[in-house]
Write a protein that binds this DNA or RNA. Sequence first.
DNA 1: AGCACGCCGACT
DNA 2: GTCGGCGTGCTC
Length: 835
Amino acid sequence: MSRIEVAVAAPLFQTLSYSFDSDKDGDPVGRRVLVRLGPQKVTGYVLGLLPDEDVSFRILPVLRFLDDRDKPLFPENLVPFFKWIADYYHYPIGEVVKTALPGGLTLRNRKVLQVMPDVEKNTIRWPDPNIAAPDWFSSLLAGKELSAAVTKKILIETQFSKAIDELKQKKLIRIVDVLDKVKTSEKLELCYRKTTTIELPQLGEAEQETAVAKGADQLLVNGEKLSIPMIRTLVNLTALAREQGVDSVAAKDLRRMYSGASRALKELEKQGLVCSEERRIYRNPFGEILTHFPKPESLSEEQTQVLSEILPALQQQTFTPFLLHGVTGCGKTEVYLRAAEETLTLGRDVLVLVPEIALATQLEAHFVSRFGDQVVLLHSGLSPGERYDQWSLAASGRAKIVIGARSAVFAPLSNPGLIVVDEEHDGAYKQEDGLRYQGRDLAILRGRYNKAVVILGSGTPTVTSFASAMKGKFTLLSMRKRVENRPLPTVQIVDLRDKKEKNYQEAIGKKLHKELGLNLEQGKQSILLLNRRGFSSVYLCSDCGEPVKCLHCHVSLTYHKRRAKLVCHYCGYTLKDKVICGACQSTKLTPVGYGTERIEMEIQERFPEARVARIDSDTAADRRAFLALLKKMHQREIDILIGTQMIAKGHDFPHVTLVGVIWADGGLSMPDYRGAERTYQLLSQVTGRAGRGDSPGRVIVQTLRPEHYAIQFARVHDYERLYQKEMENRANPKFPPFLRMINLKISGGNEGQVQSTAAQVAALCRTGKHAGIEILGPAPSPVDRIRDRYRWQVLLKGADSPLLHGICGRVLGRYSSLVKGDIRIAIDVDPESMM
DNA sequence: AGCACGCCGACT
DNA sequence: GTCGGCGTGCTC
Ligand SMILES: [Zn+2]
Ligand SMILES: [Zn+2]
């Protein structure tokens, strides 16, 4: 028996030791095991081998392996990566691995309540006279199985415990442990292989029919009695195998050729002429046939220049991070593709991260065009089965290129030599629940562990990344020219404070209206951006001025006119739009503020003849409808497209010549030190959507703060000055990149308890070493109640990273004494949103 | 997390 | 008296 280090799927900060039979089970690393953990059975992930030294605890053998020999779920190179993440994000190691793996692969035992096998059901009475027999008891007697989830609920209800104990003692019912059934696994397909060498007569259909007509239901071929269906199937099998260049052929293909194949195959198998086998098939997530992008003959001067730095770094096979600063349409994609080509030539793998795969289909299409089935996809849009298959293709080394969203940074590639993070500034790289990791940062880390080249690409890099480039931590590569020398659009700022410009209660100013009308006349497409969905952001009482709030969250409800509903964007709570004011019972409520839905309606009133469409997370929930809309946009069947930041990302609309930003400063009033940066990024991205060679683009930016530098620098497309200004601002008072932050988030159902726990957390931070660390709070979070949970926070700021993490460790060390009832403490390292 | 063990309040 | 509440601690 050999000893292994296992991370179990439980919130433990340490790994545990188990033993296994190395002769029988082979290499254990990267495979799942089922292990005992106290009185339960849980999934563990094997991280490595351990020396046989004396220990103070007993070492249990693993119950069994959940992954086959030689089919590890993840390569060994991910192990130090996982450990670093667990440490840095203060997250249990097993949960880190669980987050990294595709879902549905973590099994554990659960309790199920059932009637004792040989007990006659109708003889059982509900034993507790004080309460009526509950529904679950009746369905149990009716012969239904209770699920583990239902059992859990029943066992939590203390009112039933007496009756259950009694029934258990009388041996009428029992509670058994069942293991989760496997949710995601390999998909197998039945195949047949010819095992006979007999030569088949070249029997055409006509001849077969003649034979049947003559009454011959069987023919003798080389001493074997074969029916016509058997011959036909055997002929088809031989032909298909030759055609596909394989030995065994899928039964379903044979059935498609001849419906009698199933029965014939069974007969053939019985006579030993064919044998059946299961073959693994890989579910294919590439839904639509993607556009083919041919490889360009030549590269631009800038592409050549940039590649002359990247390719040698790839050949050196050392960790080299690049920041590729290239405006929209500068031809970054071709740089990624050439770098990927070189990486494959060197026998290494490629990992490409994109913000949200649904919107990055063009990058996907480019990679598939160039590299075919060496590419796999990993993103949330896949079914669990597809995701598992794509994962296994990478894990087994059959796929060399992984393209995916944030979590693809954990892709099981054994030797990544190139990691690309496209649109590195995108907020989607930060996971905002559970393991709150930053995909971009982890990409850099993985590059370091795997001695890979990392390319962070963006037209508007995060200030932090650009600062790293300035400090020399990243090599800065710049691409300033748009391909085909498309000019940058002209940007005009419109001051919304000017009463002559815009009427009260309207969103579109005179200037924007005029330009939209002009574009419409000329049959050109326009885009309108407003980063808020719904009709209005608040629904105000005209009598007392109070907004309608969510019952479960401390936020105003958003009015959705088409659905005639008031909706909470945090928890989904909805009200009909016929409400009375909760404060004064008034019925006079009016929508105030703007959302995309309201813009859509205003546009329809202003331009009744225009073909208008809207893209936001309400309308894009259905990926197929979303893709259909994009297609309509490409085919110029839409004149004006209205949307949230979604329209600014990823997708190129070649015929758009006008972009209108309804309210550019919306993000500047948020409690976020990156407000200016984000505003610039959004404006810059949406600006990049306007114009093509022959028809230059115009951008109208409406704002209440026309003088703000983020808006002014966006007008002149000057990233460097934005960067400098931001660095000045963040130097005093200090914000990242001049220091680091960790947010300790305390939440729970009882406001007083949350507040006092938050106070204890803050006190704990302040006791002990904290020199040079600013400890802010405890304070209520900006949204201090979501889903009936109160939320407080303690924010740590400081340049001394080890000390910051030390303070977190101190809090975590007291975790069990701090956390009572439903209180939770979440640690958000490098927070991006304080909400 | 999930489970066992252990120590105090309010029932028979 | 004990039944059951949940605070505390542990899991290789
Ligand atoms: Zn009111
Ligand atoms: Zn809500």
